[in-house]
Design a protein around this nucleic acid. Sequence first.
DNA 1: TTGAAAGCGCTAACAC
DNA 2: GTGTTAGCGCTTTCAA
Lengths: 335, 335
Amino acid sequence: MVTVHDVAARSGVSIATVSRTLRVPHRVSGDTRDRVLAAIEELGYRPNRAAASLRRGRTGVIAFVVPDIENPYFASLTKGAQAASRARGYGLVVVDTTESAEVESEEIRALRSQIDGIILVSSRLPDEQLLEVAEGAVSVLINRDLGDRSPATPSVAIDEAAASDAAVAHLAELGHRRLAYVGGPAHSWSQERRARGVRDAVAARPGLTLAELADVVPTAAGGRAVADAVLGGGVTAVLAYNDLVALGLLAEWGERGVRVPEDISLVGFDNTFVAELSSPLLTSVGTDLRDAGEAAVELLLQRVEATDSDAPAAYRTLRPELVVRASTAPVRTAD
Amino acid sequence: MVTVHDVAARSGVSIATVSRTLRVPHRVSGDTRDRVLAAIEELGYRPNRAAASLRRGRTGVIAFVVPDIENPYFASLTKGAQAASRARGYGLVVVDTTESAEVESEEIRALRSQIDGIILVSSRLPDEQLLEVAEGAVSVLINRDLGDRSPATPSVAIDEAAASDAAVAHLAELGHRRLAYVGGPAHSWSQERRARGVRDAVAARPGLTLAELADVVPTAAGGRAVADAVLGGGVTAVLAYNDLVALGLLAEWGERGVRVPEDISLVGFDNTFVAELSSPLLTSVGTDLRDAGEAAVELLLQRVEATDSDAPAAYRTLRPELVVRASTAPVRTAD
DNA sequence: TTGAAAGCGCTAACAC
DNA sequence: GTGTTAGCGCTTTCAA
């Protein structure tokens, strides 16, 4: 292993100068800098992070905690976070909690002392526990919000009201009047906001009616299971909790001869890549998740690197975009 | 921050004993052990990993390098690796190389000194560079194999010959005689083995013919692009390079009135979760990817923790399973 | 079985 | 602008 001592010897300076050349190059004369850099190159020197961490009290690693890395939604967020942290020279430890609050809290506890900061995505922890975690470490939340309870914790959230409104507006414009919303898990943070958003958007448009299905398992299987129940009542357009549920509806309907969009229009949430896997392609509303992942990293590092806690907490609200694909069409028959 | 000193003071022993209690408990008397453990509990002591790493020369972190975390195939592998490394007390740094060999080699270089080992999944590096990496660190390969060139590097691979054979056998049994294989990227390691496997399986069954399409982009869009080209020549069943390509074919055919499985049967490779997103559900052949990820971690840690390099290199070949779903059916008309 | 003590490689005062 | 030096918290001889 090559150490600062080797580099120092090779370039005829002290170890302090070697360290300075790397950390504060402007405090080293151009001449020495060149010599040190050359020696580093020749020797293939790589600073030992463990040593630096021990001395500086910082590890250069941040944790990214997701409920399920196989879920396309979280995979995209992770991709963005990964790229951003790499670009900033930080390592990203990805933790998959398998949707379990216990695993989540256990992992966080184990990690706490080894990382500079933590990003919690769609945390499954109850508010009080989440609060404790958030206060106990430099942290950023995605899809959760402690509000006044922890004004120092930044969060990144998607403007679900805007998303819902865009989706409903699109369907209304196509002439749909009787809508249905297939909701997700009962107490999910996103579900609550999406359901409210859809209700508000419908209420704001006279003549629209809304049927709601609650507590659907947020997977394709969940969608298939309720495909039948959604139909009827003259519903001509359906909004699904997420793309996966939408694809489940689509598949099951297809097998029962219900055609999309001829018989019924369908809109998903999140606009994940699976929206481009189906036939017809799925109209979906969502934000760029990679951007969201990046934003969270930026927010986190801003705090990590803040000399003291001078950086104000930032709440980043991301604007979603409706991507119209083939699963929505003008309502067929006037009611 | 609570340190060994605090625990030592609290329990009336030396810091050495505190350390021993955690690392080699059997060398501490039951009595002292209890006292130390109690103090640790009361104080909430967590060993500082940076310090331990510096002293022991090991970091407790392994790297998992994938081309694209958004790809369901790699996401599932990652999920398995994540669970396995957590269970063994190691941190997992996930690196997404965005399918770029440069990014891959750069990241590996940067990481090398900070990790105990590295798992390279479907590496995009050319053989000689891969060899260099594999020799320069404790490493395990998934979906690559250096063979004699680096007999010390374990690898985990799926038995593609068996997979291809199972798929072809299934179609042959259903009465299909004219098959087509939609291949993946020209020089991909998996593609080469899958193509060979399919060819061999077809050759082994008199009466079967095979049409091959090469160098298809391994995504749904890639599949859509060649949906037309595959048809014709009396082909009644198609094998696709992976599930994504299969879904692309399925979607495009659907829009052109070609029905699956009535008009044509379709089989995907990998059996990722997207095979359950379509209508009809996709017949697909693959191994449990989480298991593969776990296996790689086991192999790696076995070497990491080997006192010296006593552990023999292990080549783990995983047996794939064919999951028959609705996209395959008996050939409709006798030829 | 336990303790004293020597560093692991690096950074950051502090002197010059 | 550069060098000297004192640790960061831990593990591990070596002695007792």
